[in-house]
């Protein structure tokens, strides 16, 4: 082997080895890197009880109820399999709406209700102008109509 080839293979081997080690470490700590738990995780007992953690999912349609005093709000977070009721007192972010992703931080109460002290809206990967969205909804409606 030429010294240069030796060097190349050494660098390649070192980078490969380090990547493998990192991958193993990340894999091991995977559950700690997770930013939020889904309602299914909670029902399976994977989420910590009596401790602050984050719950993530979709805001269920027609579940958002604003309290009369204005700041209190309750809604249901779902991952389409399990639902969890959330109560929150504070200002909601711009993107918070029904059918959209949400991450709430707080505690799970004994009653099974989640008391949030922070609500973060999660954006999805779709970007389009309002007209395109309207056209898509129109197309979806015409597709659905004959079935009814």
């Amino acid at each position: 082997m030429k010294p240069r080839h030796k060097k190349i293979s050494f660098i390649a081997l070192a980078v490969f080895g380090l990547s493998a080690v990192t991958l193993l470490i990340l894999n091991t700590f995977s559950s700690n890197i997770v930013f939020f738990h889904s309602p299914t995780d909670i029902s399976e007992g994977k989420a910590p009880i009596n401790q602050t953690f984050r719950l993530g999912g979709m805001v269920k349609d027609n579940s958002v109820k604003h309290n009369k005093d204005g700041l209190k709000v309750s809604f249901t977070v779902t991952d389409t399999i399990k639902d969890i009721n959330v109560t929150y007192k504070g200002i909601l972010p711009d993107l918070f709406r029904e059918g959209q992703g949400v991450v709430v931080q707080g505690k799970l109460l004994q009653t099974g209700e989640f008391k949030a002290d922070q609500v973060l809206a999660k954006h999805d990967e779709n970007y389009m102008p309002p007209e395109a969205k309207a056209a898509m909804e129109q197309a979806a409606r015409t597709l659905l109509l004959p079935k009814k």
């Binding site: 990340l26 997770v34 930013f35 738990h37 973060l120 954006h123 999805d124 779709n126 970007y127």
Partner: peptide
């Protein structure tokens, strides 16, 4: 992709 993140997935 690997973890639940608040950041949206690749567009």
């Amino acid at each position: 992709e690997w973890w639940n993140t608040l950041h949206q997935p690749t567009s």
